[in-house]
């Protein structure tokens, strides 16, 4: 299905491209929200990613999933933004999570999510990218290495580093509790 849509989109079919962008929108936005932890910045980069994809669809060479290409564009745009402005404001209330069943649970979940987001945000950007892509979106090492443009071994060691750090931070949080 995706392959057919890509073929049509490359031939200039606007509806096919629109459908491709719609089906991958959540992945791109979710990934960027996790990376930036900032709604405004995420919305800007999502818009720019979509625009770049529309402008360059004819140059796109389908090797893997279409989302891999979109995530690569989004990653490059995020890196550009970081180069221009290194101070990204951390917003803990991203408000894109599911509505919880009851108030008590909602408060507990909110606190947990805030802690998790803080732990994630403290990881170095390049390492966080790898963790988010692997843990939340299940990309293969090979795909991640193409997105972040580094060897598979580096992807593996970055992921390992993130897991170690997260486990350490979680221990700290549990100890404090």
């Amino acid at each position: 299905m995706e392959e057919r849509l890509v073929k049509l989109a490359k031939k200039g079919d606007k509806t096919a491209l629109e459908r491709l962008l719609q089906s991958n929108y959540s992945i791109v936005k979710g990934y960027l929200l996790k990376m930036t932890m900032n709604k405004t910045l995420t919305e800007d980069i999502v818009q720019e990613t979509m625009m770049k994809a529309i402008l360059n669809i004819k140059k796109y060479k389908p090797k893997g999933k279409f989302s891999t290409w979109l995530i690569t564009i989004a990653t490059n745009l995020y890196r550009d933004k970081l180069r221009k402005d290194k101070r990204i404001i951390f917003e803990n209330d991203l408000s894109y999570h599911e509505v919880p069943k009851n108030l008590e649970q909602s408060v507990i979940d909110k606190i947990d999510i805030e802690k998790i987001n803080k732990i994630l945000f403290e990881l170095p950007d390049e390492k966080r990218m790898v963790f988010i892509l692997k843990h939340y979106y299940g990309y293969q090492y090979k795909e991640i290495s193409e997105i972040v443009k580094c060897p598979i071994g580096t992807v593996r060691s970055r992921l390992h580093y993130c897991i170690k750090q997260i486990q350490l931070q979680m221990e700290g949080v549990n100890d404090n509790e």
Partner: peptide, 11 residues
Amino acid sequence: IMDKAKIEPSI
């Protein structure tokens, strides 16, 4: 624990 922070923004 980490899955609690999964984000699925609407289209």
